[in-house]
């Protein structure tokens, strides 16, 4: 569905991605693991087009989308939930959700009802400013907003960051349910190994701008593998 071939990117003159090869299949939850500074967030930003690739390519559903503008990539069906959630704090929950529909190919701006089935909380808070909600609720809003665009792929960067443990578990459950219902693919960046392993079908590990290991959840659960690539 989404593939990169020796994808390179840099912040200014500092190269961060040194050649990333990645393949995300249809209906798959792929966990992207790695230490801080490995380039995970940079990869996500390059995939959605917020950062220009300096080399290599990104293809999505057979089309080369390398260095397309973000709004174009979003409208093709890739949704992005950034680290820190990226909600608009001064807009209401309803307005945030409506903005999620801007990437719909059919141009409709009504929020699909399924979003409220997944996150009933959001319905109660439609007229509230998004910035006044708790971290967990904001994360639900960010995911709900991403789904409102009816995407084929969800890029999810550290959904557990700054959220109570009980809700972290819930988010993992939501993700599995959403993938089962809609068949979308998820690329999940996560520092919380438990969440990643409980949710993902497959894992890849990034180190210094490259994918250095790939394997099933079972292989990754192995203590030595974890220590080698992820130990703090």
């Amino acid at each position: 569905m989404l593939n990169t071939t020796s994808l390179k990117a840099a912040y200014g003159a500092v190269p961060v991605l040194l050649g990333v090869d990645l393949a995300l299949g249809e209906g798959e939850i792929l966990a992207l693991l790695g230490r801080n500074g490995a380039g995970k967030t940079t990869l996500m930003r390059t995939l959605i087009g917020l950062l220009k690739a300096t080399g290599g390519s990104v293809t999505f559903a057979g089309a080369d989308i390398t260095n397309f503008p973000p709004h174009d990539i979003a409208r093709r069906g890739i949704a992005y939930v950034p680290q820190g959630r990226g909600i608009f704090p001064k807009l209401t929950v309803a307005e945030n959700l409506e903005l999620g529909t801007r990437s719909r190919p059919d141009g409709r701006s009504d929020v699909p009802a399924e979003i409220f089935d997944y996150f009933p909380r959001l319905r109660e808070r439609l007229s509230q400013s998004a910035g006044t909600m708790s971290g967990g609720e904001q994360q639900m809003l960010a995911i709900g907003r991403a789904l409102a665009g009816d995407p084929k792929i969800l890029l999810l960067d550290e959904p557990s960051e700054g959220i109570q443990p009980s809700i972290v578990h819930q988010i993992g459950e939501f993700l599995k349910r959403i993938v089962a219902d809609t068949g979308i693919s998820v690329l999940l960046v996560e520092q919380n190994i438990d969440l990643a392993l409980a949710t993902a079908d497959r894992c890849i590990v990034m180190e210094k701008g490259r994918i250095v290991r790939e394997g099933s959840v079972e292989e990754m659960s192995d203590e030595t593998v974890m220590r080698e690539f992820l130990a703090v």
């Binding site: 959605i48 917020l50 709004h71 979003a74 992005y80 950034p82 704090p89 807009l91 307005e95 903005l99």
Partner: peptide, 25 residues
């Protein structure tokens, strides 16, 4: 209006607005 909401979103967070599918240019 739709245009008004797009403007307010772009004022608050231009990158996020474009990542949601708004043509900020």
């Amino acid at each position: 209006t739709r245009f008004g909401l797009d403007i307010r979103a772009v004022i608050q967070d231009r990158s996020m607005a474009s990542a949601l599918g708004i043509d900020t240019e």
